[in-house]
Computed example of a mutant assay.
Amino acid sequence: MQQEPNPRPATGYPYPHPYPDPPQQPAASANGYPPNAGTAYPYQNHNPYYAPQPNPRAILLRRLFIAFLVFILILGLILFILMLVFRSQYPDVYINSLSVSNFNVSNNHLSGKWDLQLQFRNPNSKMSLQYDTVFLTLYYHRPSRISLSDTRLQPFDQGTKDQTPVNATLSVAGTYVDGRMTNSILEDRSGGRVEFDLRIDSTVTFRYGAFRRRRYVRSYCDDVAVGIPASRGSGEMIGPSKRCKSY
């Protein structure tokens, strides 16, 4: 049988493409690089135990800032307490009354009994006081301060702005005095009055919350006149209560 010179493919069967189509390339951008070239294959961390580490310098600065704030707060508290302490006032001491009994001077020997009442006042509005030790010393003020008797009071506490009356007794029984002092006392009694001096030595603790500061306070009650006529051996303080000077 004779074949046709240009045979045609059979209908219904596609003509096989001899070569595959090349992959399509994305169109270049204006700068010559394909778009999203940097994000085509993003990096993924597949390690679940990895976490970004904090900056050591930032941690150090944060700790230094916190330490600085704490230091400022502590310093401010100390300065506040010191301001209260330096502005604290000494206690006020008054001698309200003083009476003398069995007072006698003869043959260079002195006898007598002094009953007195003191008033301690705390002038501070923020600090309480604790009187740990209180010593009283009685003097005859002329011709020089000569100690006659002394005693110690019981410790006591005071709140802010408190006032505390304290009674005390001092006595002398036949103590020796020189001729100069004997003559001076007899001269004073001839005028109907004898003057005495009282010294108060206290160890006081100033308290503000948990803060404590102990201070030594000395108070003087000078020229306390007592009316003691020569015909009697007893007398009372002349005038109203007397404020003592504290240092």
Rank of each mutant, 00 (worst) to 15 (best):
D223G: 07
N36S: 12
K161L: 14
R180S: 09
H46L: 14
E187W: 04
S128Q: 04
T205L: 07
V177T: 07
A173M: 08
L98H: 04
Q130E: 10
P56F: 12
Q119L: 14
R215N: 10
A58F: 01
M83C: 06
A28R: 14
S190I: 05
A173S: 15
P20T: 05
R180M: 11
R207A: 03
L170G: 10
K242D: 01
L61Q: 08
N104F: 06
I81M: 04
N104H: 07
V93Y: 07
L79V: 13
S106Y: 09
D150K: 10
P143T: 06
R62P: 00
F156K: 06
F71G: 11
S171G: 02
V224I: 15
Y208E: 00
S171I: 01
D21N: 02
I59K: 05
I95P: 01
A37D: 09
A28Q: 15
P5V: 12
P34Y: 12
N47G: 01
S149E: 12
A225H: 06
F196D: 04
G239L: 12
I81R: 01
R207Y: 04
F86G: 01
G76I: 05
L82W: 10
G239S: 02
T182K: 09
Q53C: 03
N167L: 07
R145P: 00
D222F: 08
M237C: 02
Y208V: 03
L153H: 04
S231R: 06
D157L: 14
I81H: 05
L198I: 08
M1I: 02
S231D: 14
Y13E: 11
R57M: 10
R207T: 10
P54D: 07
G235S: 06
Q89H: 11
L153V: 05
Y131A: 09
L84H: 13
Q25S: 10
P56I: 08
R57T: 13
D197M: 05
G12N: 11
P123S: 03
Y33F: 12
A225Y: 11
N31D: 15
T11F: 07
H17C: 10
Q89E: 15
T133H: 01
P5I: 08
G179M: 10
A173D: 15
L82K: 09
D188M: 13
W114R: 05
F196Y: 15
R232K: 10
R232A: 09
Q3Y: 07
P9R: 07
A210D: 00
L60W: 00
S202N: 13
Y33A: 02
F65G: 06
G235Q: 09
P35K: 04
S234W: 13
R243W: 05
Y176Q: 01
L129R: 00
Y19P: 00
P52C: 05
A210C: 00
